[in-house]
Each structure stands twice: as C-alpha cells, then as structure tokens.
C-alpha cells in the first residue's frame, strides 16, 4: 500500500468534471484506490463517491492505492492533482 496527502488546487473544487477525470485516471489501474477527506473514505473509481466528498479548493485529500500497480497509480493521481484535474 502506498499513500500520499494531496491538496485540491483547482478553484471550483472537485465537482462533476474533475470527478470524471479522477475516475477516468483511476479506472486505468488495477489497484484499489481510495480518497479520504475528513475521515470519509471514497472509492476513487466511483464518480458519485468522489463527488460526495465535496472536496473544495485547498482541501487535503489522503490518496491510498493498493495493488500490483499502486506506485504508478499514485503517481498518476498526483499528476492529475498537479494538472488541476485538467480543467483550467
């Protein structure tokens, strides 16, 4: 299992479009990936789960990945956060 705490860097927060980007990225990996915010854990491959975190601008999210490609998965998620979910 690998994990890392990441900060939401796009101003509107993780709404439907960023959530779709998260699900799309995470769906490419076999590993089980979760986002945890304020003690609430969400499956990163479910768009409704991710949206219900209502992760606003500046929120900290603990990303955890477990599985055969966990390192690559975590890197991809980190890149996605850096790219502001490819939104703006």
């Amino acid at each position: 299992m690998v994990s890392k705490e990441l900060k939401v860097t796009n101003e509107a927060g993780i709404h439907a479009r960023p959530a779709a980007a998260v699900v799309e990225t995470c769906g490419q990996f076999q590993s089980h990936i979760t986002f945890t915010k304020d003690d609430v854990q969400a499956n990163a491959k479910s768009i409704m789960n991710i949206m219900l975190l209502a992760a606003e601008f500046g929120a900290m999210i603990l990303v955890e990945a477990e599985g055969p490609d966990e390192v690559a998965a975590l890197e991809a998620v980190e890149q996605l956060f850096e790219d502001r979910f490819r939104q703006e």
Binding site: D38, N49, A54
Partner: peptide, 17 residues
C-alpha cells in the same frame, strides 16, 4: 464547496454511501 470547511452534510452523505 464554496466557503465551507468541512461540510457536516457532505460527511453524513458520504458515510451513507
């Protein structure tokens, strides 16, 4: 998400999921 940190509401909803 605007002007909230953290939302009790969202927490409750996500737990239900």
């Amino acid at each position: 998400m605007k002007g909230k940190t953290p939302s009790k509401d969202a927490t409750r909803l996500s737990t239900e999921v």
